[in-house]
Amino acid sequence: MDTLLSFRPLFDLFLIHLGFAYSQYIVLRAGAFSIGNVGLSAIGAYTAAILTVNYGLPLPVTLLAGALAGLAFGTLLAIPLARLRGVYQAIASLAFVQIVLSANLYAENVTGGAMGFSGIPKLVGTGTLLVFALGTIYVMLAISRSRLGRAFDAVREDEGMAVSLGINAARTQAIAYMISGLLAGLFGSLEALHSYAVEPNQFGFHLIIVILSYVVLGGRRSVWGPLVGVALLIALPEISRPLADARIMIYGLILMVVMNFMPRGIVDTLVARRARRRSRAANPEVRQAEVKG
């Protein structure tokens, strides 16, 4: 029991980062390469922290406010980013995160600046986190098999094709940004109300890289991809604890090895392999297209 309890902080971290990972996943799924969700998490976290500490609002209200703040900024972000594509979109959203960070440092009297915002009561425990994480997975699965998921896939795979079928690409991606913003804001709030303090650098370049790694390593298409990615990369440092100094190196090597041998991410590569095997079993004759590549 004691050993189980000692893993609880790790499990909490897993649940929070799962939410962050899905807020990243949903925009990538819709073919938008935005990493702005980290900035939206920061906005959610600070909103919840300030409302709780300075105004003493109850938990449901602060969580809702944090989520709505993420949603609002996510929607705003969608408008300019719709003009951009690929890496340019990524860099513009990176600029957004940096602006949020610096604004945070600048507005010292509200946010606590570089020192961070502390003295937040711990209102969120493992149970609450678990409920929200499971809810998020459910919503992701529901979206996946709905018209929205199909529209996301079409826009991601080929925008020109998607519009030829009557899909409004900008609007579809805007919906993804909104869902992403909502999740980012919500889990940012949960993080703030779970960990006593928030500080700006916790939502920076480093977190962007970590979250992106979860999703790309696990798989960007299947709903289970981010789950596998987060589980693996959160467990990894614990498993390699005896290696002490070399832990970061192991982490890096795992990223390289998995990407090299499963370039679509763990889950998506497995899914694709299975589909290929099944279709080959169903149609034993060698297909023309496969020969052509």
Binding site: A275, R276, S279, A282, A289
Partner: peptide, 10 residues
């Protein structure tokens, strides 16, 4: 129906 579209002949 269940085959990946890319695996089909032209």
């Amino acid at each position: 129906a269940d085959s990946p579209a890319g695996s089909l002949a032209y």
